[in-house]
């Protein structure tokens, strides 16, 4: 069965008084990898469970290639899923774990053997057939879980924070492997994470979730460069966020009194959010800030500085680590160009 296209339409789900999903709509195209990014409690796991069939929505529809599946039991959905802690069957060896979904579909013996072998080769675990899950490392278990989720050519692949339990180095390797595999097989994939870096590495598009609703869904660059509200600006990447009003064309007056040059062609009087990414500051620019160093952290490739400037503005600034780390208390001048300021409506 070929990979499918997924449409979620106005999904709602409450647990008692708590609204877990508030009319969530989402479209995932064939072969696309969409990451659902959000803090814990944002509803992302509930959304995944609705797609997988472990949770029934109060209302809304889940369509795979145009067919409604919201009321189908999980076993009938043909969706591969990798669980947070892999959920491998502890009493079955690697080969039997991977063969499980095929056996459940009454696939013939030779066909099963062939596909399991292929899947294990795909995740580079050929030769591990007889091992039990507990005899494998975390990364290997993760690969088995992945092989088991794709061996039956599911219509969708769901990944529920599958890298959370792994150390950084291994996580980065596996992220890229998963991405390559997903693209090679053209698998329509939903990936859940609370790690914004992971989301930036893997995704075609990112849906940022908070309070049971999707705040913004867009490409990685779009999410990072042009977030639509405070939450997205703050949750993805490091940020300096201020509120103000468009006082004249291309001029924003912040609530604290500071006037900034920006690029915005709109009627004056409009309330706006202003986002300045820490790494976009240079030695000087259209907007200059003079401030005292409150905190200076050496991070290898960069310096992370916190400055206190006039108007009570505190700025987070990243500088390439060249020369000497500024001292706390030192006076520093930084600048940012007008077109590096991102403005969003409030």
């Amino acid at each position: 069965m070929a990979s499918a296209q997924l449409r979620l339409e106005r999904i709602g789900k409450r647990f008692g008084e708590v609204v877990a999903l508030d009319n969530v709509s989402l479209a995932v195209e064939q072969g696309e990898l969409v990451t659902i990014l959000g803090p814990s409690g944002s509803g992302k796991t509930t959304l995944l469970k609705v797609v997988a069939g472990f949770e029934t929505p109060d209302h809304g529809s889940v369509k795979v290639d145009g067919t409604e599946i919201a009321w189908l039991p999980p076993a009938k959905r043909d969706i591969g899923m990798v669980f947070q802690h892999y959920a491998l069957f502890p009493h079955l060896n690697v080969r039997k774990n991977v063969a499980f979904p095929l056996e459940m579909r009454n696939t013939g013996k030779s066909e099963t053997d062939r596909r399991v072998t292929d899947a294990l080769e795909l995740v580079e675990l050929a030769g591990y057939d007889e091992r039990l899950p507990r005899q494998l490392s975390g990364g290997q278990q993760q690969r088995v879980a992945l092989a088991r989720a794709i061996v039956f050519s599911p219509r969708l692949l769901l990944l529920d924070e599958p890298f959370g339990a792994l150390d950084r180095k291994l996580r980065e390797t596996l992220q890229l492997e998963v991405r390559r595999l997903q693209q090679r097989l053209g698998l329509t994939t939903i990936f859940i994470t609370h790690d914004q870096e992971e989301a930036l590495v893997l995704s075609d598009r990112i849906a940022v979730m908070s309070k049971g609703a999707i705040q913004q869904i867009a490409t990685r660059a779009e999410i990072y460069e042009r977030p639509v509200n405070d939450f997205v600006a703050d949750f993805v990447g490091e940020s300096n966020i201020f509120h103000g009003v468009l006082s004249a064309q291309n001029t924003v007056t912040l609530d604290n009194g500071r006037v900034l040059q920006a690029k915005r062609d709109a009627a004056p009087g409009k309330r706006l959010g202003v986002l300045m990414r820490p790494e976009r500051f240079l030695a000087t620019g259209d907007n200059v800030f003079v401030g005292d160093v409150l905190e200076a952290i050496y991070l290898g490739a960069s310096f992370k500085l916190r400055l206190r400037c006039e108007h009570g503005i505190e700025l987070l600034v990243r500088q390439p680590a060249r020369g000497k780390l500024p001292m706390v208390g030192e006076r520093l001048t930084v600048g940012i160009d007008a077109d590096e300021l991102h403005l969003f409506d409030l």
């Binding site: 069939g53 039991p73 999980p74 076993a75 959905r77 969706i79 959920a87 069957f89 499980f100 979904p101």
Partner: peptide, 27 residues
């Protein structure tokens, strides 16, 4: 038993019968 293991079996296409005999009983 970890409930995720049962969910995994369901998601992979196992019927109630199979989940009982292949997962619950051995585990």
């Amino acid at each position: 038993l970890d409930p995720a293991i049962i969910q995994a079996a369901q998601g992979l296409g196992a019927s109630t019968w199979h989940i009982f005999w292949r997962i619950y009983v051995p585990l």
